[in-house]
Design a protein around this nucleic acid. Structure first.
Length: 323
DNA sequence: GGTAGACCTGGACGC
DNA sequence: GCGTCCAGGTCTACC
């Protein structure tokens, strides 16, 4: 009999708001259904892949229905993955402090950011989002799952494991997944994860210093200042900004800043300085708010139409070229 | 420490 | 329909 898990959530948790809070919810193997407000994806577990459909019940608890029976160990694994994706383990005191520091987000309750079940998936997704337009990021993740993801009973495919990508030939990765020059970097990253050269527990330990984590991330192949800043927030560390060309557009069109790119980067850093260790969330929810002001709440976005062109560069400039 | 150019893809544009 | 141009972040070479 297929397994169904019931997962307790914090009182302030809202699936539609908190799952649809960061662009990765639109990337394979994630599937958000706006009609049923259900999050679906294939999870890679110890005994193989399993397809999960997650919805929120009236009492607030999450119900995760799988396409096969999970062992006890797999149930624990699946639960951990779902908790990580939805930031269910974010300390209430941390969210309360964020809302004190930046009261704009208190009424809506925003504070959690969607992420992947594993750090490995978050790192690879970040690499596929660098130096590329959003539609290409969508394509890369879809093909990575199609080509290297394990199939579940229901037929869907999960995200590739480090072992699978570490064994991939860069040329194949490039040709079949359209990852371009990122090919060797993705294989190298997968190898580091597979060999245990990346100490995930150390990176996720709140006691580890943010500066040390940031410095380490920048030593990884394909990870520069932007990617490292983004991976920081995916680790639940919001003290760094992940500034890119989208940030510059935000600075000019929403914040009304003027000047060269370099000058704007400095002004943005100063602008978010007052939010201290929560600055990324203050920045991100401003950006997200802008997207939603143009296209409606994120939980209503259709993955294949609205969501494929949701970045602000296009929203701000009708007919704009970049995603 | 700062800067320029290459890396690759896909969409926009001009013809 | 085809060729060209360009955005996007990281990496390397060079000053």
């Amino acid at each position: 009999m297929p397994t169904t898990l019931s997962i307790t959530t914090p009182d302030d948790f809202v699936l539609a708001r908190d799952a649809c809070s960061y662009g990765y919810f639109l990337l394979e193997p994630n599937h958000w259904d706006p009609q049923t407000r259900t999050l679906g994806r294939v999870l890679t577990l110890g005994g193989g892949s399993a397809s999960a459909r997650i919805d929120q019940r009236r009492d607030g608890r999450l119900r995760a229905r799988f396409d096969r029976t999970l062992s006890r160990a797999e149930q624990a694994e699946a639960r951990d993955g779902i908790v990580r994706m939805l930031s269910l383990d974010a300390p209430a005191s941390d969210l309360a402090e964020f809302h004190r520091v930046d009261p704009r987000w208190g009424p809506s309750g925003r504070g959690r950011l969607f992420r992947s079940p594993t750090l490995f998936e978050d790192v690879i997704k970040t690499v596929t989002s660098c130096n590329v337009a959003w539609p290409s990021t969508i394509t890369m993740n879809r093909r990575l799952c199609e080509v290297y993801g394990a199939r579940s009973v229901a037929g869907g495919r999960g995200f590739p494991t480090p072992a699978k990508l570490a064994r991939a030939r860069p040329e194949t990765l490039r040709a079949r997944c359209r990852v371009g020059y990122r090919d060797a970097r993705i294989v190298a990253l997968a190898g580091l994860f597979r060999r245990g050269a990346i100490d995930v527990a150390w990176l996720e330990d709140p006691a580890t210093d943010d500066d040390e984590v940031f410095a380490f991330l920048k030593t990884l192949p394909g990870i520069g200042p932007y990617a490292a800043g983004n991976i920081m927030q995916l680790l639940g560390r919001y003290s760094r900004l992940a500034l890119d060309s989208e940030s510059l557009r935000h600075a000019r069109s929403v914040l009304g800043m003027e000047g060269t790119d370099a000058a704007l980067m400095k002004r943005l850093a100063a602008h978010y300085e007052p939010f201290g260790r929560h600055r990324f969330r203050s920045y991100w929810f401003e950006l997200w708010d802008f997207y939603e002001s143009k296209r409606g709440p994120a939980h209503t976005w259709d993955k294949h139409t609205t969501a494929a062109t949701f970045t602000a560069a296009q929203l701000a400039e009708p007919g704009g070229r970049r995603g």
